[in-house]
Design a protein around this nucleic acid. Structure first.
Lengths: 242, 242
DNA sequence: TAGATTGTTAATCGATTAACAATC
DNA sequence: TAGATTGTTAATCGATTAACAATC
């Protein structure tokens, strides 16, 4: 356990490690080396050992890492064992889909309430969770601990609802609106799912590839070799290295 | 126009630039300096100038950048002017939501077909787009150019459908399944929206913050100052710098 | 024991920031 | 012209990779 500050790059790899370990555990595997895990995820063994060592000494020389205990450590590090309570802000179509998939996506988290301003929705149920009037939010969070808010509202109300969430003291927002929401200096955590940004990134690489192809067509295939092309764009870091 | 290889970090900032520029254009602003744009997005002026200069000389000394022409350049770089055709694989709830929001998310792209294996869905319409039998996919792409596939299917069929997409020659996949899909050495582009990974990242920082708080409680508030705490976790790079 | 593989230190590589001449 | 601000080169900072002693 060395590094004092852990970079965002390291953090974003942790869920991927957890995913791989869950798979391995299901297959009944007992142990794995940094080098095998590296092959699975397209990372170097060095990087994997560095990443883990930022949090402790989880492996054993000559043996590798015990899959179940490493998985447990990651769950602890990520906080999936903390029984966080989640609320949904915006119970429209997207919100509904998110709730339905919620248990798949977020094992160990509990959805305790949904909020909307639409009277057609208020009073209904989403899975096992009630939809409340957004004006009841403050009251609700005074009586119930809410750790994370899922924000799935129209773009034009995103900032107003962010302000509300900050005001009532929600510590973390999972933002699905395609807006750069502003929490000021509140210290409220924001994690964005910007669909459009992700889509445009894909569009970029596709365009880049086409441009390269157009280019080499211009050069009238003097070099007839197959151009490799990026094959994987993973969030924040590349899979294969070129 | 200098750098030959452009890093993924730069690329992932481009959609954010575009978003800011669209906003500014709507406000009727004409020009902006790297330093003002930097303030908007929490980036240094240097970084912004570096990023743009990888693609060309879009600014003017003493003036800054013309908002509309910079926006146009970015659209060109990202390929939003290329009229890409998109298909949807998996017309379930998530797929439906994605299609409904598609025009908002991806202006300038056309959804030309949806595919599913469910006979309750096949033959219906999603917005203005027909849902076809997935077994017709190969035939369909022989007759229609399809540039990007949105993959929104259950986790256990994700890889099989990826294989199919690769086989029929789709060049880019926007993957919404929480699975590390494998396109082998095909060179097919993959951009992931891993909901779970994103959620766990948020959970991590929340937990991290709580741990820090617990820590400083242990130290019996000798230093009574307010701890700042990370306020923004943006994809791939941090907003405020600590 | 010998082989495997860790955790960690040092080396390398890459990305961000700073500085500044060029110029609108 | 003077002030502003670019594009780019150089300096700094940080992250990844390599190497290796420690040890299971």
């Amino acid at each position: 356990m060395k590094k004092t500050t852990i970079s965002i790059n390291v953090v974003r790899r942790l869920p991927r490690y957890l995913r791989a370990l869950n798979e391995l555990a299901e297959e009944g595997r007992e142990r794995i080396s940094s080098s095998e895990l590296g092959k699975m995820l397209g990372l170097t063994p060095s990087q994997i050992r560095q990443d883990f060592s930022a949090y402790g000494e989880f492996g054993q020389q000559g043996y590798g890492y015990n899959i179940c205990s490493l998985r447990d450590e990651l769950n602890r590090i990520l906080g999936t064992d903390r029984n966080y309570s989640v609320i949904l802000i915006g119970a429209g179509k997207l919100g509904q889909v998110l709730v339905e998939n919620f248990n798949q996506v977020a094992k160990g988290y509990e959805l305790i309430g949904a909020f909307d301003a639409d009277y057609n929705l208020i009073g209904r149920k989403l899975s096992e969770c009630s939809i409340y009037d957004i004006r009841q939010l403050e009251e609700f969070v005074q009586e119930n601990q809410a750790d994370i808010a899922i924000l799935s509202v129209p773009m034009d109300s995103a900032q107003a609802l962010t302000d509300l969430l900050v005001q009532v003291g929600i510590p973390a927002i999972w933002n699905f609106t395609n807006v750069e929401i502003d929490v000021g200096k509140s210290g409220v955590l924001v994690e964005n799912i910007h669909f459009a940004d992700s889509f445009l990134t894909l569009s970029y690489f596709l365009t880049d590839k086409k441009r390269t192809a157009e280019q080499s067509n211009k050069h009238e295939r003097e070099s007839a070799g197959d151009m490799p092309g990026r094959s994987y764009l993973l969030p924040a870091d590349r899979k294969g290295k070129g």
